[in-house]
Write a protein that binds this DNA or RNA. Structure first.
Length: 197
DNA sequence: AGCAAGATCGCC
DNA sequence: GCGATCTTGCTG
């Protein structure tokens, strides 16, 4: 069965962690069996030097306080009607995080299809951050938990064939930060989100 | 208290 | 392309 990856996996600089996460599994253990997706796309957020990061102000708020905690914590937040999930990176007091943007369904396909409504192609189940959380059944209840704890954790996956980088998506007017190549995704994978081709 | 805006999605 | 509809944070 799947088991959580070691704690030390998270204790690397945020850009490295964002790249290393591509190709790993996200596992959500539920009563009917595990939901598993292989991560194919991430983005690094590098507060407080990164104007696009929620932690740019370098001041903990109710929303962002978990980013100041230890590496590997779960940072979830709401965007309109959707939940997005992040992995906290960096030492305590350093508000870095990695946004999980897309995945490839591996196991629990029936359940993921039901979570998304069965009228679409499989690649549309998880090719965006809001879609992925919905397919996996993740919500704000996981805020502040750790990515090595049941029932929602990162497990070691097969890795990625080739990871390429590009500018981040959807961050609008963030000064120079809009051009930083801090998006990591597996080359030619059809589950990568399709903004900014 | 009140309101504007956001690391988005799906349908018009 | 635009509207949905939730939480946060600042008073625009």
């Amino acid at each position: 069965m799947y088991k959580p990856i070691s704690d030390s996996f998270f204790e690397v600089p945020v850009l490295e962690l964002a790249q290393n996460l591509v190709g790993q599994y996200i596992v959500h253990n539920l009563e009917n069996g595990p939901l598993v997706a292989r991560i194919v796309e991430t983005e690094a957020y590098h507060g407080p030097e990164d104007q696009a990061a929620h932690s740019f102000s370098n001041r903990p708020t109710k929303r962002t306080e978990v980013m100041f905690g230890r590496a590997g914590l779960v940072y979830t937040y709401q965007m309109h009607t959707h939940t997005l999930m992040n992995v906290v990176a960096g030492a305590v007091g350093t508000p870095h995080a990695v946004l999980i943007r897309a995945g490839e369904p591996i196991e629990g396909l029936e359940q993921m299809g039901n979570n998304r409504g069965n009228h679409m192609k499989m690649k549309d189940w998880t090719n965006g951050p809001g879609k992925l959380t919905k397919a996996l059944g993740v919500n704000m209840d996981y805020y502040g938990r750790h990515w090595t704890e049941e029932p929602l954790f990162i497990a070691e996956g097969p890795g990625a064939i080739e990871v390429v980088t590009g500018p981040r998506v959807g961050i609008g007017n963030s000064g120079e930060a809009v051009d930083y190549p801090w998006r990591f995704f597996e080359k030619d994978n059809p589950f990568v989100s399709k903004y900014r081709p």
